[in-house]
């Protein structure tokens, strides 16, 4: 397997899910560092700040974005997300929604690499990190 991704990022308000994903990523050594944001706004703030400081090495290579979140949901995040924050990175929308209109809508964003339906399979997770590193 390739060397692990440097920075992974989870944007999700479900604490249990975030806990489990972090444990999994740590256990499988998929990423050296993991950023966690509980809603879109927190993530946008981080990305904007990082870009302003020109600290591109602090930007993640893999982003998992949830759709239903308070303050700023996944859709609003995608509207505001500056693709410069993610040059050469992969952004996955990860949601429990199996509503086809959600899936179509997500895939229409050029910044979205793919749509993953929860639960995230361990093999899928490994593949995602492998293709990003």
């Amino acid at each position: 397997m390739n060397s692990p991704v440097k920075i992974g990022c989870i944007i999700d308000d479900d604490n249990t899910y975030v806990n489990l994903m972090s444990t999994l990523i740590k256990m499988k050594k998929l990423s050296e560092k993991l950023l966690v944001f509980n809603n879109g706004q927190e993530a946008i703030d981080y990305f904007e700040d990082t870009l302003q400081r020109g600290a591109k090495d602090e930007l993640p290579q893999v982003i998992f974005l949830d759709l239903n979140m308070p303050i700023m949901n996944g859709w609003q995040f995608l509207e505001q997300f500056d693709s410069e924050s993610c040059s050469g990175c992969s952004l996955y929308v990860v949601s429990s929604s199996i509503n086809p209109s959600d899936i179509d809508r997500a895939k229409r964003y050029p910044t979205v690499t793919d749509y993953i339906t929860k639960p995230m399979e361990i093999t899928t997770l490994e593949e995602v990190f492998a293709s990003a590193s």
Partner: peptide, 14 residues
């Protein structure tokens, strides 16, 4: 389906 799935998917991960 969304809300039940988010719980069951967590259980599956566990």
């Amino acid at each position: 389906s969304h809300n039940l799935r988010s719980q069951t998917s967590n259980l599956q991960l566990i």
